[in-house]
Amino acid sequence: MKHSISIFWRLKDNHYKIYVTKCGDCGRVAPLKRLKCPYCGSRNVEHIESRGFGELINYTVSYYRTEGSEQYLPRVVGLVKLDEGPVIIGEITDVDLNELSIGTRVEAVLRKYSSEDPNGLIYYGLKFIPVIKK
């Protein structure tokens, strides 16, 4: 899939890195750099960079086929609870479908989201793998 150059470029901070938005009013945390706290709407938020480590709390093996996805299928998509608190949706890569379980420690790694057009941009972003350093 072709993405807008400017959109992808602008989103670097939310795809090359994991930021956590921490609310100064309600105290809750949410993934991504956000303008406002999604829970209470406060603008009194700070953005903290996550170390990218966490725990897999739910996952699915996805066969959902979209053009250009065949090289990556099936893919594992899951919810990761980051050590900093919030839960993030992401792809778990490099895994055998039978080796995962709830509670698997994972770490964020830079990978390609997609790159099927040989003349187009390569869309890099973070996915997760089971931690290498146990």
């Binding site: 090289q71 490099d94 790694v109 990978r111």
Partner: peptide, 13 residues
């Protein structure tokens, strides 16, 4: 390297 890896992603790690 896996399908989603290349020189950039490995170099990053």
């Amino acid at each position: 390297a896996g399908a989603d890896e290349d020189t950039v992603t490995m170099g990053w790690y």
